[in-house]
């Protein structure tokens, strides 16, 4: 990992809302290329704000952000973003939703369609390509949103609690789908969640946030490829406990 070049770097990034309240108080982290970092913290600690600033959706009050060594000064096409809700367009079929990023840039050709179908296949919903979002379950919509975020093969993927609304089993399925998709493409990921188990299962490293700051970093030294049984191993539980106590400590500091 150490030898890889940096893909995302935030240095001394702070953000103040228009009403004067502080969202971020100086965030520093570097994610190596192909790294999978999870951002955990209680709700309201600034995870979404941090992600939006990193993505260029919000301009930082101070500090700097670089993606692939290019300073970020607005939404970048290098970043795929997955929102908390699937945010599919209800008047487009699943396949057209997945192709939206390409169709906004110009015309969709055969190879784009082929790639979109491949992504849907990997996401396990190829057979639903011609359906409309309202005809899908929540989990299936999340799969479509994931495929959409990867259709332009962005080097960086940012995800804001994408599976938070799903039931436990569906969530585990989607975690495996996500790992497969990003490992195959070497995508760098920042994944926001409030679920410690999810963070430990997915990440190389967990950044614990509290009150607009990153208070702890926990290295997840679990081997890859990861599989569902991992969740019941002693080392996994130990790591989860470590993250949990870091979150509790952070709360004490506030």
């Amino acid at each position: 990992m150490q030898t890889n070049p940096t893909s995302i770097s935030l240095s001394k990034v702070s953000y103040t809302f228009s009403n004067g309240s502080k969202g971020l108080l100086g965030i520093d982290f570097n994610i190596p290329k192909g790294g999978f970092y999870c951002l955990v913290g209680r709700s309201g600690c600034g995870k979404t704000t941090c992600l939006k600033v990193a993505a260029g959706l919000l301009a930082p009050s101070s500090g700097s952000i670089k993606i692939s060594d290019t300073p970020v000064d607005g939404p970048s096409s290098d970043v795929g973003f997955v929102f908390q809700t699937p945010s599919l367009l209800e008047w487009l079929t699943v396949i057209d939703n997945v192709l939206l990023p390409i169709s906004l840039k110009g015309s969709v050709n055969k190879s784009d369609e082929k790639f979109a179908l491949e992504l849907l296949e990997l996401a396990g919903i190829k057979h639903l390509a011609q359906r409309y979002p309202e005809q899908l379950s929540g989990g299936q919509q999340s799969r479509a949103a994931l495929a959409r975020s990867l259709v332009t093969s962005p080097p960086v993927l940012m995800m804001d609690e994408p599976f938070a609304a799903l039931d436990a089993l569906t969530r585990e399925d989607l975690q495996d789908v996500l790992i497969n998709l990003v490992e195959a493409s070497g995508t760098t990921v920042i994944f926001v969640t409030h679920d410690i188990g999810e963070a430990a299962y997915l990440g190389d490293k967990i950044l614990v946030m509290e009150g607009g700051l990153i208070t702890h970093e926990v290295e997840i030294d679990l081997p890859r490829p990861r599989a569902s049984d991992l969740r019941y191993e002693a080392h996994f539980s130990k790591l989860c406990r470590k993250v949990r106590s870091a979150m509790l400590l952070g709360a004490g500091q506030c």
Binding site: L57, Q84, T85, S87, L100, L104
Partner: peptide, 25 residues
């Protein structure tokens, strides 16, 4: 919804595209 507007911003949609392909429908 804010998330859909953010989606179109992330995808680099122009203002006209956002109006015609997101807001109007």
């Amino acid at each position: 919804p804010q998330e859909k507007r953010d989606l179109f911003r992330m995808l680099g949609a122009t203002r006209l595209q956002t109006l015609l392909r997101l807001k109007l429908p």
